[in-house]
């Protein structure tokens, strides 16, 4: 126990500042009313769905929970069921064998809901493209609000994508004004 406590004290707090939302990542107009966003606020439940990735994007989603990024401090946490989720974080390409499971997961997520596609493959199908076994981009299967490119996108970019999805229209205009 002594070693453990000493290590905690020695490490201190390493969490860094969270990134800001980035409007250029938005795919379709904001689907949620400001009122709904206010309710979601920064208490957001995320369900991750791997729809066929190479598992590279999963490594970076894991890293979002590392103490440097400390996603939970922002009120964002991963949940075990789509029925508890506000937002789906989907990596791709969507394999043909995962198409049904992804649709069902989307349908099981209560309204209002948001979808963030992660990675080059989630955005476009990437190097796997579309084929007999791959449906390509996540948006080919379910509506996507925000798409985050990268192979894989770094944790800060993933967090930025999530924050963009939940940033409100009023927040958009004020951040545009401040630029």
């Amino acid at each position: 126990m002594y070693h453990l406590l000493k290590q905690i004290a020695k490490t201190g707090i390493v969490s860094e500042r969270a990134p800001q939302a980035d409007e250029s990542l938005r795919q379709i107009g904001q689907r949620l009313h400001d009122a709904a966003l206010k309710h979601l606020g920064r208490a957001l439940c995320v369900r991750h769905v791997d729809a066929g990735s190479c598992n590279g994007c999963e490594l970076e989603i894991h890293a979002c929970n590392s103490p440097y990024y400390n996603l939970e401090r922002l009120g964002i946490r991963f949940v075990a069921s789509p029925r508890h989720a506000d937002l789906l974080l989907v990596t791709g390409p969507v394999s043909a064998h995962m198409e049904t499971a992804l649709r069902r997961t989307y349908d099981a997520t209560p309204e209002p809901k948001l979808v963030v596609a992660i990675g080059d493959c989630g955005c476009t199908g990437g190097i796997f493209g579309e084929s007999y076994a791959s449906r390509g981009a996540v948006s080919k299967v379910i509506p996507v609000d925000v798409a985050v490119p990268g192979c894989p996108p770094a944790p800060a970019a993933i967090i930025q994508g999530i924050l963009t999805a939940v940033s409100s229209a009023s927040g958009r205009s004020s951040s545009a004004a401040s630029r």
């Binding site: 791997d50 066929g52 990735s53 190479c54 598992n55 590279g56 994007c57 999963e58 490594l59 390409p93 394999s95 043909a96 064998h97 995962m98 499971a101 990437g126 190097i127 796997f128 493209g129 084929s131 007999y132 076994a133 791959s134 192979c151 894989p152």
Partner: peptide
């Protein structure tokens, strides 16, 4: 569930391009 046609995809690529695909068979 993750079958995405990697082996078939190799046959559509040049040997050089295949390197990028090989690096994404299992990202870890």
């Amino acid at each position: 569930y993750k079958h995405k046609g990697i082996e078939k995809r190799f046959e559509a690529l040049s040997a050089d391009e295949g390197a990028r695909l090989a690096g994404r068979v299992s990202g870890d």
